[in-house]
């Protein structure tokens, strides 16, 4: 265990305490202290993350670093707000904000199609359906179960263990030379631009999707059909036999 790993562990613990205080526990006491703890932990993570502009030392790299930091902070803060809001509608809105941050992160990696698809599929379809069900199934006033949590402390501890192990493992494997994954540029030792960042990005992605991964596309299409039929069957499943139209005999 070196110093960085201990600091990663400390940041994770601080974040877990912050999340625990922010989760609904029946009272509002300590909520703002939790926000402060979580922000402090996020700042520690940002401080520990290696800097991109130190590797290249250019103004463009510094600007890119700042954009990445901004997107990451938006994504993570919105995700934390999603799980700590008392009102589920606010949770859904914060989740949409988190999705915007994620699609920004995709765009930063050059995944233009995914950035647009995330917004269209998630924010456009899934989230609107969630909000629709929320409006349909919301009892009057604030529900008591939005002001309580299951075992908030144990859940935060579980998350802290997982994130702590993950971040320490990522950091140590990236810093030691022998176990560091070799990038494509290092393997091929050619200075051509990465294929993933090629011009006509969507055309290349579609060509891959419908040639190399064609069977997977077919399987996913079938899965969508099955899910559609399943959802219809679930919703209309418990009709009484007397509701059936006459003539539809029992098989």
């Amino acid at each position: 265990m070196n110093e960085t790993q201990i600091t990663f562990g400390a940041a994770t613990l601080l974040g877990a305490v912050g999340l625990w205080l922010m989760l609904p526990r029946g009272s509002h006491r300590g909520r703002w202290l939790g926000v402060l703890c979580a922000l402090g932990s996020l700042g520690l993570f940002g401080y520990l993350a290696p800097r991109m502009y130190l590797a290249e030392e250019s103004t463009a790299a510094l600007a890119g670093e700042l954009v990445f930091m901004l997107l990451a902070v938006v994504t993570i803060v919105s995700a934390a707000a999603t799980i700590s809001m008392r009102n589920p509608v606010y949770s859904a809105i914060w989740f949409a904000m988190s999705l915007l941050g994620t699609s920004g992160l995709f765009l930063y990696q050059g995944a233009q199609f995914l950035a647009v698809a995330t917004i269209v599929v998630y924010a456009g379809a899934i989230l609107v359906t969630f909000l629709f069900v929320l409006m349909l199934a919301q009892p009057k006033g604030h529900a008591y179960y939005d002001r309580l949590s299951w075992e908030a402390l144990l859940s935060a501890g579980t998350g802290a263990v997982l994130v702590g192990v993950l971040t320490m493992a990522i950091d140590s494997s990236m810093k030691s030379d022998e176990s560091r994954p070799k990038s494509a540029a290092a393997e091929q030792s050619t200075d051509q631009a990465p294929v993933v960042l090629a011009e006509q990005h969507v055309a290349h992605l579609g060509a891959q999707l419908f040639s190399k991964y064609l069977i997977a596309v077919e399987v996913v299409g079938t899965l969508l059909l099955v899910a559609l039929v399943g959802a219809v069957a679930i919703v209309s499943g418990d009709r009484k036999p007397s509701d059936r139209p006459k003539g539809a005999g029992h098989a």
Binding site: I76, A79, W150
Partner: peptide
Amino acid sequence: LHNYLIVGALLFGIGLVGFLARRN
């Protein structure tokens, strides 16, 4: 890669805590 993996781990952890703790 390092920074993106850290962000992914944090998102996964936050979602895990929320899934275990929230009741709605």
